[in-house]
Amino acid sequence: MSAMLNRSGAGFAPPSSADFDFKPIFGNSIFTTKPVFLCFLSVILIATFFILSARKAAIVPSRLQFAGESVYGFVRGTLGEAVIGPEFMRFVPFLFSLFTFVLTNNLFGIVPFLQFPTMSRIGFPISITLCVYVCYHWIAIRKHGFIKYMKDVCFMPGIPAPVYIILTPVEFATYFVTRPLTLAMRLFANMFAGHLLLLIFTLGGEYLLKSGALIKIFSLFSFTFAIGLSFFEFGIQCLQAYIFTLLTALYIAGAVADEH
């Protein structure tokens, strides 16, 4: 229906995936677009926050130190120790930087004037998923040796031999294709859909505001919805950062475990 309205002239143009393409801010390179700068900004913000919060560490923490430490304590306790087990301390820096990076980049989606979750461009989730992928396979191969790891992954004990023809490819595909793929897709799809949802309500409100006198009132509903959904999005963004790090921790836990 929206396509028909568009064809007839001045109609509401719904947001599409074209709204996620940005022109380079300067030059003609894909490395100078808004998401890339947001990514750099997130690194600067995270570094500044945690350096400031850890610089004057005291036994009675200041408010800033308490904020920094509670994030660290959350990642270390809930995602590190509870999931990975006794060897967790080696992986806490990785999990912590992953969690803060994903969380900050997601939260850019509802910060005024930035208003773009970096993770809604598929390249960013894929690249951090690649880090996770290399990390947990490398740990497992270092621990068990390549051949034993492959045997553990592909051949379950206690099955008659002919069944392996059916089950082994599925196991292999799960470990090496589906798991990283779903890890990246889940984060990307949530951020993409969330940003699109906010765009629909803000652009719709703007369009209603431009039309006739009586219809202007309805734009109020649209903007109210957009603000309400921003809070909803805040929840989703935190949850997705948590789930991403949690699944990473679970995969690492599977890699350091003695048997699968």
Partner: peptide, 26 residues
């Protein structure tokens, strides 16, 4: 209890991954 609840959460995603890869591969 917390740890086993978290593992359960992971198990549900693993179930999902197994079903998808089985269907996709075969």
């Amino acid at each position: 209890a917390k740890a086993s609840a978290i593992r359960e959460d992971g198990a549900f995603w693993s179930i999902f991954a197994y079903l998808i890869s089985g269907l996709l591969f075969w």
